[in-house]
């Protein structure tokens, strides 16, 4: 393949991947984070005790997470069509990616929030804080480094998931690799795709780590 053609294919595929990952990441996190906060604070004797709802939400989250992504993509096609009016293309691919992101973020956020020392919650209660003040001023503030790493991990996983949405014509880097590199026996395309993916994932991880380190005031920085 001519280098300029390869470059143009790669560029288009990269933009599609970034588009899918960004939109699914943002929407999925906006929905997943509150669910994670709920899961972390609604157990028996916690800030918003609702143990039954907590168990139900937890079960739904587990069910979604245990469904293999490629099956999820196919299974929710009717829903995807309802939302986007079509079941193929990049926009259609964003729907299953978002659905998969929500429980992923929820669980990671839950565990990041549960890492916060219970003593801080008690101290805040002793100051007369409302449960919502505790969530925003204590839990989210203290879990910020953990949440940042959770969102980083989410984006990296999304890059991997997005390779599978070629199955519904979603495009992106994974799709390019499969169609050109594998089905048309063009190893140079496959190689180029892998290199771009590695660079993309590295970039996400490195910036996530840097951000998390900046938020983390627990380590002495002398």
């Amino acid at each position: 393949m001519a280098p300029d053609m390869l470059f143009s294919l790669l560029w288009k595929a990269l933009l599609q991947t970034v588009h899918m990952v960004a939109v699914a990441g943002v929407i999925g996190s906006l929905i997943g984070l509150p669910i994670g906060i709920f899961l972390a604070t609604s157990g028996r004797g916690e800030l918003f005790p609702a143990p039954t709802v907590n168990k139900i939400v937890g079960a739904i989250v587990n069910a979604t997470r245990s469904t293999p992504f490629i099956i999820l993509v196919v299974a929710i096609i009717p829903f995807t069509r309802l939302v986007t009016g079509t079941s193929i293309g990049t926009a259609a691919a964003i729907v299953p990616l978002t659905i998969a992101t929500i429980p992923f973020v929820a669980r990671l956020a839950e565990s990041a929030i549960r890492e916060v020392d219970k003593g801080l919650i008690e101290a805040a209660r002793a100051m007369g804080a409302t449960p919502l003040q505790i969530v925003f001023k204590v839990l989210l503030a203290e879990a910020k480094p953990g949440l940042t790493l959770a969102l980083t991990l989410t984006l990296v996983s999304l890059v991997g998931y997005s390779a599978m949405v070629g199955a519904v014509g979603g495009g992106g880097l994974g799709d390019l690799g499969i169609r050109y590199g594998y089905q048309r026996f063009m190893p140079e395309v496959m190689f180029a795709v892998v290199v771009v993916l590695i660079v993309l994932v590295q970039a996400i991880q490195t910036s996530g780590d840097m951000l998390a380190r900046r938020f983390d005031k627990k380590a002495r920085k002398n």
């Binding site: 101290a123 805040a124 100051m127 007369g128 804080a129 001023k137 503030a141 203290e142 005031k217």
Partner: peptide
């Protein structure tokens, strides 16, 4: 009542994400 009753703890229970100043400010923000 809790705003009229201060409490200190064995393990201090300070927010690691806040400076000393901002930790002291927390009950006032609340």
């Amino acid at each position: 009542l809790r705003r009229q009753v201060g409490m200190i703890f064995q393990h201090f229970n300070l927010l690691s994400s806040r400076t000393a100043f901002d930790n002291i400010a927390l009950p006032l923000e609340i």
